[in-house]
Design a protein around this nucleic acid. Structure first.
Lengths: 138, 138
DNA sequence: GTAACTGCAAAATATTTGCATCCTT
DNA sequence: AAGGATGCAAATATTTTGCAGTTAC
C-alpha cells in the first residue's frame, strides 16, 4: 500500500495541495476513523471548513476513503484499501465502534459474512458495524 | 405484537396525543423505514418539525423505534419488535436498502450472523446493512 | 388541577454554492 | 499561462432550546 501522500494523490490524478496532503496524512496516521470535526481540529483549523468538505468529497469519489455510517448521525471516514478505486468500494471488512471512547476502527482482518436474503432481494454491497468495547477500554 | 397505537403508547407510559398517534400509525402502516422528512410529508405537515423531532426521540428512548444508519447521512427510523424495551435494542435482523427506489426495510427473517473479532474487542451489538435491488425494482 | 406535550420563535449547527484569488502543473 | 483548488461570504438545511399556551389524565 502506498503510504506517501504525494504518491497517493498523484496516482489518483489529484493535484498535490497543502490541505489534501495534511488531511490524507491525518488518515494514514490515525488509528481510527475520523469525523469531519476531528479533521478540522486535528489540522489545527488551518483549513477552511469548506475545503475540508470538498477534500473529503474528492477523496470519496476517488475511492481513497469510505464512510462508516453510525446510528447517531455522525458519519466517519476511513482510508480504503488499495483495491477500492474510482468510487467502487470493496470494503468487505467489519467496522467496530467503541461505546466508551468512540473509537471507530476498520477490522481489516474480519470479513463481512454472507447472508441469504428472501426471494426477490438482490444484494450488491454489505456492511457490518459492531459496537462494543475496544482493546484500550477493557 | 400490539398494533393499536393507543395500546402501544400506554404500554410505554406515554400520554396519547394526536402527533404520537399519527406518527406511530405511519410506522405501523409503512412497509419501509422512514426518514424525518418522510414523516413530515406523510403526516401532511400537520405537525411542527420540532414535534416530529421530539416524538422520534421519545419513541427511541422507549424502544418503540430504532435507527438504521445509511452511508449517505440520512438516518431512517423503523419500528422495533416487541422485545426492544427501554432503549435496549435487540434488533438482530438485517436491514436492506434499495439502490433504486431507496426503500429501506427490515428483513425480520434474516438474522445478523455472528462474527469472530480480534482479541481485545468485546462485541455488544451488531448491525448489518445490505444494499442492492429490492423486490419491486427488479 | 397538574404535569406533560405542542407550536412558535429563535439560536445553534451543519452543509452547499458562487465567486474572486491563489496555487499547481 | 490555464485549469483547478482555496477561502470567504452568504445561502440553505438541519437540529436544538426556551417559553407560553394547550391538552391529556
Amino acid at each position: 500500500m502506498l503510504t506517501d501522500v504525494n504518491d497517493i494523490l498523484k496516482k489518483n490524478q489529484l493535484s498535490v495541495t497543502d490541505s489534501r496532503k495534511s488531511i490524507l496524512d491525518l488518515f494514514i496516521h490515525s488509528n481510527g476513523a475520523l469525523a469531519h470535526a476531528d479533521i478540522e481540529k486535528q489540522t489545527g483549523e488551518k483549513f477552511d471548513r469548506v475545503t475540508v468538505y470538498r477534500t473529503l468529497q474528492v477523496f470519496m469519489e476517488k475511492g481513497i476513503i469510505h464512510t462508516i455510517p453510525t446510528s447517531d448521525n455522525s458519519i466517519r471516514y476511513a482510508l480504503c484499501k488499495d483495491d477500492c478505486t474510482g468510487g467502487h468500494h470493496h470494503d468487505n471488512h467489519v467496522h467496530f465502534i467503541c461505546k466508551i471512547c468512540g473509537l471507530t476502527s476498520c477490522l481489516d482482518s474480519v470479513t463481512v459474512p454472507e447472508v441469504r436474503l428472501p426471494v426477490g432481494f438482490r444484494p450488491l454491497e454489505k456492511q457490518m458495524i459492531v459496537t462494543g468495547i475496544c482493546e484500550g477500554c477493557q
